[in-house]
């Protein structure tokens, strides 16, 4: 049982559901009977159905599947960015269904980092300000120094004052990775992180992502249709037409 008094939650929160996070044990993500259904012009459309799995701390998991298999939707539900039609999701010990929108936001601020296919940097902020953002949202001390350290780690310290539009795609994704790790998250969600990059740049981004992941002991949950990228992970969950079809666990380290 891991008992670590995390300074970031000691700051105190108005959301009571989030206060039980301090010393939970067991899986970082637990999904039970998850279902997502939307109303389309042709009637109800089931995107995800009867999804069950758990992910342990420090694991790296790839969710793979064809386009439209529901993998991005699954990611959004795991991260509390959207709400399921049925079933439950526990993230870092908290039942997402019991949290409201702001409660989930607070949980993300404290526990979760994101890397997106299209980077999703805020164009109005400099690279440094983008990385500072989650630190400030989580109320961490000295956000500027930590952010600069992280930019140095991804090799972009010299570009700290540049705006996203002044950076190449690969550089933008490195800023996004710095931002994702800035909050010192327990879980990192990555949605096709190399999808918009050429192969060579993509390789470098993946290396960076996994290196940081190892250094910080983060749980990595990665959505991709790229089998090569998925092979980097400890475990691969395969989605087909909204259902979990199979699970491959790597026997030995990469």
């Amino acid at each position: 049982m891991r008992v670590d008094r995390d300074p970031k939650t000691a700051k105190g929160s108005s959301v009571t559901a989030a206060s039980s996070l301090d010393n939970h044990s067991g899986p970082i993500v637990r999904v039970v009977a998850l279902r997502k259904q939307v109303v389309s012009p042709e009637g109800p459309l089931v995107i995800l159905d009867d999804i069950n799995f758990t992910i342990d701390r420090g694991e790296s998991v790839a969710v793979v599947g064809a386009s439209g298999s529901g993998k991005s939707t699954l990611l959004s539900l795991l991260a509390g960015l959207d709400t399921p039609s049925a079933g439950r999701v526990w993230l870092a010990g908290a039942d997402l269904g019991e949290l409201d929108e702001d409660g989930r936001a607070l949980l993300r601020a404290q526990r979760v980092g994101f890397v997106f296919q299209s980077f999703q940097l805020l164009l109005g902020l400099t690279a440094l300000e983008n990385v500072m953002l989650p630190l400030e949202l989580a109320g961490q001390p000295e956000p500027r120094r930590s952010a600069l350290d992280l930019l140095e780690r991804v090799g972009l310290k010299a570009r700290a004052r540049h705006y996203p539009t002044q950076l190449s795609g690969g550089e933008q994704q490195r800023v996004a990775i710095a931002r994702a790790f800035a909050g010192n998250p327990d879980v990192l969600f990555a949605d096709e992180p190399t999808g918009n990059l050429d192969q060579k740049t993509g390789h470098r981004i993946v290396d960076l992502l996994f290196d940081l992941n190892r250094e910080q002991g983060t749980t990595l949950i990665l959505v991709t249709h790229d089998a090569e990228l998925a092979a980097y992970c400890d475990r691969v969950l395969e989605l087909d037409d909204g259902r979990l079809q199979g699970e491959t666990r790597k026997a030995e380290a990469r």
Binding site: L81, E101, A105, L107, A109, V112, L122, R179
Partner: peptide
Amino acid sequence: DERRFESAVLRTLGAQRAM
């Protein structure tokens, strides 16, 4: 359009609506 995107990114990163 930009604003919707920005507010979505901010909230994804954990910003509460009040912020």
